[in-house]
């Protein structure tokens, strides 16, 4: 599983943890998050996230 980071506010989406508060189950791959999802902290769209290299 991978981690993705919001380019604007730095929030990290960890696929292992999902984002249950936001209705995204643990294990959800970033690609499978609905396209109209917005970063919960700053509101930008999925396009503004990048894959985090470890």
């Amino acid at each position: 599983m991978r981690k993705w980071q919001c380019l604007v506010c730095g929030l990290i989406y960890d696929e292992t943890l999902g984002m249950p508060d936001d209705g995204i189950a643990p294990g959800t791959r970033f690609e499978d998050i609905p396209d109209d999802w917005a970063c919960p902290d700053c509101g930008v769209s999925k396009d503004d996230f990048e894959l985090l290299e470890e």
């Binding site: 917005a38 930008v44 769209s45 396009d47």
Partner: peptide, 14 residues
């Protein structure tokens, strides 16, 4: 209202 100010400049595309 809580909104995303950075989105104002790419809201049309989104």
């Amino acid at each position: 209202v809580f909104y995303s100010k950075p989105m104002l400049s790419n809201a049309l595309t989104a």
